[in-house]
Design a protein around this nucleic acid. Structure first.
Lengths: 185, 185
DNA sequence: TTGACAAACGGAGGGGGCCCCCATATCGTA
DNA sequence: TACGATATGGGGGCCCCCTCCGTTTGTCAA
């Protein structure tokens, strides 16, 4: 239904789709990822059946809500992959954490996306994961990261920290630095 | 209602209270902290009104469900406060993380408890927090921890990691060690 | 322009959850 | 045993998720 490969849809379909995503973005930003789907439909001026026809699950809707921000992050990772591997990875993890802590609902959505078994490029979690893998591998190559650390470890850590500090990017950033540097002197 | 200072309650009150906590413990262990309160009441053989009369909120019920495990942890912290400050703190954080990751619903309950403004000794979060403060202060005294690290930072980190790895204590432990030691060599 | 068909819509309802009201039942005691 | 305080639970209100199905709307060919 929300299939990007599908042919041209009717104009009302497209209009409603956009209205739903925009409304969902606003309400998720205000109330978090658990906001009522009924309320999103009401606010968008469509019946709840329409919402469910467009998005098979809450997660599918959230994926679309956060797609732009995640695309921005992906491009940023591309930039960082051109510079110093160590700085690049650290900056990436910091900016990812800050973005997630700043974007209500994103940490929960990224974490939920980790449990879906669709190709990496198809989910927000997958996109972030691919970017992280690239930057971690570059850091590995110059021994800037402990060898026993995996990209998924780092992702779990980032998602955990940003979820625990949702709405407080400064604390999120501080906790991430703590984890990166270690607790002991 | 669930006030421990209250005088002797009627026997049926006490019986139902115990049944509810025991049933809640079983269902939370099976399904997590979001299990339906109606189901707990049904399974315990009481009306849902009775459940709400005994526990003003889900959080109050969870506090009671996890009280024993948290008391066990508190005692363990007391033991650890007698040995080496550095080892004691690290062991404490590891065991706390492992316990939380192993106990379905506990991470969520601890995190939720952080937002309640009741005295530290009254909530599971508060009890864990007091224990952590003691051990962190001992570690501070021998400079075994970076001075900019606060007990609440460590708690947030532990709660975040254990929540993100709920049901997988090995990963929880690995991620905690990572954070304690730092990501880079 | 119009007519016909596929595509899309939305109200309504079933199933469930949370919480509370109040008529009823039970416990402890005199 | 009878009485009053204490505790119970069914049922209802309200909201949520999701689907069915009768109705509307957009599109395109004639």
């Amino acid at each position: 239904m929300a299939n990007p490969k599908a042919g041209p849809q009717r104009s009302d379909w497209q209009r409603n789709h956009e209205r739903l995503v925009a409304t969902a973005a606003a309400l998720v930003a205000r109330d978090g990822a658990q906001v009522s789907l009924e309320e999103i439909a009401r606010e968008a001026g469509v019946g709840s059946a329409t919402l469910h026809r467009h998005f098979a699950s809450r997660q599918v809707l959230l994926e679309e809500v956060f797609r732009d921000e995640v695309e921005r992050l992906r491009r940023r990772a591309g930039e960082l992959a051109g510079g110093d591997p160590r700085t690049g990875l650290v900056t990436w993890l910091e900016e990812l954490t800050t973005s997630a802590a700043n974007t209500r609902g994103l940490p929960a959505s990224l974490a939920a996306g980790a449990d879906v078994d669709s190709p990496d490029g198809d989910t927000c979690h997958g996109i972030v994961r691919e970017a992280t893998v690239v930057l971690v591998n570059r850091a590995f190559a110059v021994a800037a990261v402990r060898p026993e650390v995996s990209p998924d470890d780092l992702l779990t850590l980032v998602e955990a920290v940003s979820r625990a500090t949702e709405g407080d990017p400064l604390t999120a950033r501080r906790l991430l630095r703590l984890a990166l540097d270690g607790i002991c002197p």
